[in-house]
Nucleic acid binder design. Structure first.
Lengths: 343, 343
DNA sequence: TTGTACGCGTTATCAT
DNA sequence: ATGATAACGCGTACAA
């Protein structure tokens, strides 16, 4: 099967390329007869216009670049599903890349997106990105950009975020309401962009309830995995008497803690209540099932992609566009790992 | 920041566009001085060649289309990660789409890939695809195509597959070796392309060990989820005395069964041993942890993408390419759900 | 109503 | 060593 172009059709019909183009695009200065002849032949030849050529002319690739720090993480999958939904509706393609939480990868992907002439970029910063010149470069080059989830205030672009401070405060308050008096906090990556806000939320909740902050029961995990959680659990176990609740920045970490504390014979939630972040599907399988702060990834993806396309279309139509920041509400999902009777 | 092209540079330097192009591409008929001047200015202007124009000229988009039936499924994520790895190394972009196991979506995505002029397509058929004309169309249009995982023999293209028959046989043999005498089988979707082969493998193992096949303990789940598994568990419980082992076509299904049997007080693996398919991360969290047939998704992605790019480059160089089918080995990962002493 | 001519940004060919 | 020109496939201002 050969490839056809406007030229093929024009030749076969003995008319000009321009006429064919106009006919196919339903210009109203083309006779109905010609239109029909052209369309019939196009149909018959199974003609599909070359979108590369279109892109070159229109200076629009109809491609969106999507970067997540870790595609294996269920949350980012949810984000992607939201992005795909909107992109598809609006006729955009999504090119997917993962930074693996490595800044160099992030830089490389951004560069290749630039020279692929993507129309816009969706990015969640890697936890190991500590400097933003490569991101600012994108903004300077006037490529529409929306940061989601992992965000930096220093970058002037639209953002779709979770209010991590509020989320952590809500979570901590939940444990306090259950009667926990000695609440520990466990982070994943030390530098995680979300870590500080969650920490503040945690401390706010303590203060508002007249509880004192104890730095000895704030732990840094080596990473966000189950194994990291199991290691932290050993440290928690050493201070077992100083802890009756744990706010954990990540579901897997929390599940690792649960698994290890189970092994050590600590009763959850009776002796120690555990709470995670994300609402990953693992939460239901864990025994006991894990209470968690649900971050609606799908919703984040939807919104981020909507805003991005808005900005892209504004740019095409040379309209002005003002950057916006949207906050996606979180939700506390209570399961058995915090289901203890109020004492 | 304005966009620059070869023309901009040529003008600023008072030389021709052709020379600039050659200089940047290190042609050896350009003087070292000129090359340097051009490269310096390009650097300074932050010039990035327009890959859309390149594509138009080279008739190559450097884009690969990827379709999975269900991106939420961990297995396909693994496949995607393998695909991304190879694609990135070879300088290809990957556009991602999900058919959600709906044939119409599959058709739509294939069509839009065609007119996006992707260089090649990776596809796993949806479980609800029962007719393949849309796939054959792709082959007829001479767009390189590799089917992976969910495959149809009637489509003439390269394939990367798991030997499901062998896998199921291996799994069943494992239970037999443990002393199971009454092994049940549980499927997910009724029509799943993999279901028949697994069923045959299951029966082969029984026959080779002189065991009789009992159709009453072959169950069809309504779907592949934990909840579906829990429902099946109730049916298994009713025939508790007729069953001492379960081969399950899907990890989540298996975990659902485990959760429900735990609730019903059935001892796993002592009374009933359970075995799943996929090696999803859930297997480790399940209590007891789940023995499973590992399908190396990452490896499938790597191979599929390699073959696809091979075919693409062969086509570009007008070399012939012969379609091939590769089988990715499976591996039995033994965990506690089948860890019973041999009796 | 239709056709001519040009430009989008590259690169390959052929002159100079 | 460098440059002029054509071509990839499309859309559109302008001329006919």
């Amino acid at each position: 099967m050969e490839k056809h172009s406007l030229k093929t059709i024009a030749k076969k019909l003995g008319i000009s390329v321009a006429t064919v183009s106009k006919a196919l695009n339903d210009y109203n200065d083309i006779s109905a007869v010609t239109k029909q002849r052209v369309k019939d032949l196009a149909q018959e030849l199974n003609f599909i216009p070359d979108s590369v050529a279109k892109s070159l002319r229109a200076k629009q690739s109809k491609i969106i670049g999507f970067i997540a720090p870790d595609l294996m993480h269920h949350f980012y999958f949810n984000v992607l599903s939201g992005v795909l939904k909107v992109a598809q509706e609006k006729g955009y393609f999504v090119v997917v890349a993962s930074s693996e939480d490595v800044m160099d990868n992030e830089i490389r992907h951004l560069r290749s997106f630039e020279n692929k002439r993507v129309d816009g970029i969706l990015l969640a910063l890697s936890d190991n990105t500590l400097e933003y010149s490569h991101v600012n470069r994108v903004v300077q080059n006037e490529i529409p950009l929306v940061l989601y989830d992992k965000v930096s205030k220093t970058v002037k672009c639209s953002k779709v975020v979770i209010n991590d401070r509020k989320a952590a405060q809500l979570a901590t308050q939940h444990l306090i309401d259950l009667g926990c008096k000695k609440i520990a906090e466990v982070r994943g990556y030390f530098n995680a962009l979300t870590a500080i806000d969650r920490f503040i939320g945690y401390k706010n909740a303590l203060r508002e309830n007249g509880m004192t902050y104890n730095r000895k029961i704030v732990f840094d995990g080596n990473g966000p995995s189950i194994n990291d959680g199991m290691q932290v659990a050993d440290r928690i176990f050493e201070q077992k008497n100083e802890i009756d609740g744990v706010i954990c920045h990540n579901d897997l970490l929390a599940i690792g803690i649960i698994i290890r504390l189970n092994e050590l014979g600590v009763k959850i939630p009776e002796e120690i209540a555990i709470l995670g972040f994300s609402d990953s599907p693992y939460t239901k399988i864990s025994q006991p099932s894990l209470t968690t702060v649900k971050q609606n990834g799908h919703e984040i993806g939807l919104k981020a992609c909507e805003i991005l396309i808005e900005e892209i279309e504004a740019k095409v139509n040379k309209k002005s566009f003002k950057t916006k920041t949207i906050e996606i509400p979180i939700e506390l999902i209570i399961r058995k790992s915090t289901h203890k009777p109020i004492n």
